[in-house]
């Protein structure tokens, strides 16, 4: 696997500070969209495993630091779709009807993690590093 074999271009990477006058602490937000292109077709199962692991890792990082998870959400957009979500407990997995049999060269990946108790910088670093590792796993031969 090499860097050239896939593109994962963050189309958006923003921290939005909620300006509600609701006296609540502002959460840290990691929110990105990636267009992923693979050299070889990959199975939906491989994509799902890698992305589920990303959700697990963010959940465990929040748990080990006693942060409150707002939510962790992920949506794979294409002819078939995958939707993962967690509030720090179980991970809900939903997908379109043909997802399980699907192979693809490309997907659009949308991820959002909203965590209370940490900073935008800390969340961004952890989420980004682990997301890149997850994307590499999808494109690896393992």
């Amino acid at each position: 696997m090499s860097e050239e074999r896939h593109e994962h271009l963050p189309e958006h990477s923003h921290q939005h500070i909620l300006e509600c006058s609701n006296q609540q602490p502002d959460p840290a937000i990691f929110s990105e969209t990636h267009g992923l292109v693979f050299l070889e077709k990959v199975s939906s199962e491989k994509i799902q495993q890698a992305l589920t692991q990303w959700v697990e890792e963010i959940r465990e990082w929040a748990k080990s630091n006693a942060y409150l998870v707002g939510h962790i959400k992920l949506f794979v957009e294409g002819p078939e779709n995958l939707w993962l979500s967690s509030t720090g407990r179980s991970i809900n997995i939903k997908h379109s009807q043909g997802w399980s049999e699907w192979f693809t060269y490309r997907v659009n990946l949308n991820v959002t993690a909203i965590i209370f108790g940490t900073s935008k910088k800390a969340l961004g670093e952890v989420a980004q590093v682990r997301l890149q590792a997850c994307i590499k796993r999808i494109d690896s031969d393992e």
């Binding site: 937000i29 707002g70 959400k73 992920l74 959002t112």
Partner: peptide
Amino acid sequence: EVGETGIDDKILKA
């Protein structure tokens, strides 16, 4: 939605 990358809108549009 919170954040500038929407997810819920894509789920509903799908």
